[in-house]
Every structure is written in C-alpha cells, then in structure tokens.
Design a protein around this nucleic acid. Structure first.
Length: 108
DNA sequence: ACGCTGACTGGGT
DNA sequence: CACCCAGCCAGCG
C-alpha cells in the first residue's frame, strides 16, 4: 500500500515538459514533503517497477544527473535527455541549467 | 529499538 | 563554484 505522496511525486514528474528538467528540492517543496531525499526514493520505486515515469527529467540542485546509476544502465539517463534536446556537459551536468529548469509551481 | 545510508538542500567558508 | 556540515526521513539489517 503506497503512501499518497509517492503517487504525487509520480504525477508531478509526469507533468515535467519534454526537454525541461526539475529538481528534487523543487518537487519536495511543492508537495511540502520536508525531505528532498524522499523524492529520489519515490522515483526509484517507479523506475524499479518499470512504470512509465520520466524520472530522467529530475536532477539535483546543481543540474547534475545524480540518479544515473539507478537506471538500467549508467548512460540511459543522459541518453534520454539528449534525445529530448538537452545538452549534457562532460561533468554530467545539464547545460544552461537555469534556462532548462521547470518548476512545479508553473502548474498553478 | 538503534544506527547507518541515501537519486538532497541551504548556509557558511 | 567547490567543499564541509547539519538537518532531513523512510528502509533495512
């Protein structure tokens, strides 16, 4: 029996437009979760179950692909983002992050 | 019940 | 911008 906030994390993540990225903190704040770690944890649950959630569009506050090691292959997260037109720098970070960032508050 | 760990973050240096 | 530290909270041994 999954807690409600896990469903909420999934829904917000699905609302992230292709080619844009959001952060654990922004989502946690939007859902008033208190802990950004819960967002990554919740996403991992869905990725592990194979559900269709664009988890690759969620990065940390610096724009780093910190979750890449939780995907089927370490390069999958990067490949999916590049396929959407997002450039990834050599140090595994989203190029022009400030401009690519999407906040859940845009849903309001 | 207890302590450690982690897809984290804000603030200070 | 990078590094360190404390606060964060659910799972797991």
């Amino acid at each position: 029996m999954a807690a409600q906030y896990i469903e909420d994390v999934r829904d917000v993540t699905r609302a992230i437009p292709p080619g844009r990225v959001s952060t654990y903190g922004a989502i946690a704040s939007f859902l008033t979760l208190g802990s950004a770690r819960m967002v990554g944890w919740a996403l991992f649950r869905y990725v592990a179950e194979g559900d269709e959630v664009p988890a690759h569009r969620v990065v940390n506050r610096r724009g780093e692909l910190s979750g890449r090691n939780r995907f089927a292959t370490p390069t999958l997260m990067r490949e999916r983002l590049e396929a959407e037109g997002v450039t990834i720098t050599d140090d595994e970070r989203v190029a022009d992050f400030a401009n690519r960032f999407w906040s859940p508050t845009e849903l309001l």
